[in-house]
Design a protein around this nucleic acid. Structure first.
Lengths: 336, 336
DNA sequence: TTGAAAGCGCTAACAT
DNA sequence: ATGTTAGCGCTTTCAA
């Protein structure tokens, strides 16, 4: 069923059908009625590819998401979707597998679908000039800080919290409460992701406080999921190193860690304090509720979308926006 | 940048470029090399719309998801994606807002994108013949049971657990452990969704056991999120009706309820047992871990994809598959 | 108010 | 092995 079929069965030309489809003014009531009727009757929906092809301009912006199962990002999507719609654009969600290069995927997507812009959620922190150059549409990196110094501010836009500073603040929060032997649970200290940055901040804070860090308290997981965090914490406990607090780089990891601690007979916060980062909805409800550095979801979303729209509509230069993650005090931390 | 530009700058015709792009055999090494080089240099990516338009057949199957933030469904997506790819098709994720008609959205999507098939995740349980008729491609309803009897088995395929029976089993599990005053936390008892079905099973079990249900123990939330479940449980507690157990129709709701109980000074399972449905990854890690009726995610995904592929490739008729949700015993239930 | 026709970028049949 | 060309379904001038 094509526009031609509809035209045929209504005794009008394709242009008239097209006009009706696009709410153009110059169509007689009679013709419009006839066409609409045929459309309803045949459940006709115009072919998107043909439509997109013929119009040089698209109004689509891509949302490239790494890992749909990551609650923090999943929680951002609905609002982001809505804001993009409100701005008059069409959001296109695209999730990519964790083993793929998100910038490459995004660049291809942008070209293949003629996107107006891109928002990248949850990528790495270490992009090369070349990778960035491949993106020929405006884009905003969500949760990226140019911490490895490869890019210049003119080259990219970003909205993020300061991961390093957040790691630092988390450590300080624990130090201030008397903790000295603090374990850290993270993905990897050299994956150029938030893990590495939060780890750097964490180390800094300890150093500044003159507290030596025992490498035995560094717990790197293999995978970024709860199972990995759980078993790694088990191992940490089995190794027998003493610690009174744990910093987990994500809420999900913290929850898995708390379970491991619990099973080892160590209550949180009585026997071990736990602090993490993200502030997903769940953390208000767990027992104990989590003390976590909340990423300002609403602000992140608004700023990211606004920045992108400004770029698309030529209203502004690339911007790097760094927001504050503020601690929300739950029940997972205690004073020593 | 189009295929024509590449052709021009390589001194070949568009067909040669197209052949290279599609790995066709009859291209000389020299030409292929030249073209590939130009493609790399210009970061050329063929226009997807033009491609899709020209080929009558697409290999796309749509995954229509209601609510990306729902962990249960979010956890299914990656595997489903992979299985679809393995079968030689291209998955297209499409999330729709909760206030939209998912069948209508799916039908439009199928026509607009010439989809080969559809998998619908997390819709309602009450579709009309008309709605179904609008779908002109094979489809599988994931978590649908024709419980309101509008459809005939020839009309649709589905993969689901038996929600009614699961509600029944949940109630029985609690009854067997001596509970008589059991509260139930759900979305709505008349939204034609899983809530209503699980509620029906729950009532059945009570009746069968000769245990009268106190309407004061029916807790309907306004929204399907944790905040709603939390405040509704608070209200239930404030109302002062006694109950020794709670059945929550989803894990997320159970977790929120446990927090509300906890804040009211009632521990789980000591002062109140809690059982739920879904078996999301998280439930193994919460404290207490949840006793929950686990939906067999892997089986659901495999069966759904297999059924769809069979339908697409004309290998089978519509099938309705009902799987078992089996309880996984956590720490949230105790014997009275 | 309407229709005829060009062309969006690509693939594939056909011709060379 | 390579080029020429006819559409895919639609929107949009332009002419009537």
């Amino acid at each position: 069923m094509t526009i031609k079929d509809i035209a045929l069965c209504c005794g009008v030309s394709v242009s008239t059908v097209s006009r009706v489809l696009n709410n153009h003014p110059n169509v007689s009531e009679a013709a419009r009625e006839k066409v609409l009727c045929a459309i309803r009757e045949h459940h006709f929906v115009p072919n998107g590819s043909a439509r997109d092809l013929v119009k040089l301009e698209s109004d689509a912006v891509g949302l490239v998401l790494r890992g749909i199962a990551n609650s923090f990002f999943a929680e951002l999507i609905p609002t982001m979707d809505q804001l993009i719609l409100d701005a008059g654009y069409t959001p296109i969600l695209h999730q990519i597998r964790s083993d793929m290069d998100e910038l490459d995927a995004a660049a291809k997507l942008a070209r293949a679908k003629r996107l107006k812009g891109l928002i990248l959620l949850g990528g790495s922190n270490d992009y090369t000039q070349e990778q960035i150059a491949a993106l020929d549409v405006p884009f905003v990196l969500c949760t990226y800080t140019n911490s490895f110094g490869n890019l210049t501010p003119e080259q990219y836009s970003s909205v993020t919290i300061d991961d390093r500073r957040t790691g630092c603040a988390a450590a300080k929060l624990l130090l201030e409460r008397g903790h000295r032997r603090i374990a850290i649970l993270l993905d990897s200290i050299r994956d150029r992701s938030v893990s590495e940055l939060r780890w750097m901040g964490f180390r800094e804070a300890l150093e500044e406080a003159g507290v030596p860090f025992d490498p035995a308290l560094l717990a790197e997981t293999v995978s970024y999921d709860m199972a990995g965090a759980y078993s790694r914490t088990k191992k940490l406990l089995a190794d027998g190193e003493a610690f009174t607090a744990l910093f987990a780089v994500s809420d999900a990891m913290a929850i898995a860690a708390i379970r491991a601690l619990h099973e080892a007979g160590r209550s949180v916060p009585e026997d071990c304090s736990v602090v993490s980062v993200d502030g997903i909805a769940l953390t208000r409800y767990t027992i104990p509720s989590l003390t976590t550095f909340v990423q300002p979801q609403k602000e992140i979303v608004c700023t990211a979308v606004q920045t992108l729209i400004d770029l698309i509509e030529g209203r502004g230069p690339n911007r790097q926006i760094v927001l504050n993650a503020v601690p929300r005090f739950g029940q997972s931390v205690r004073q020593l």
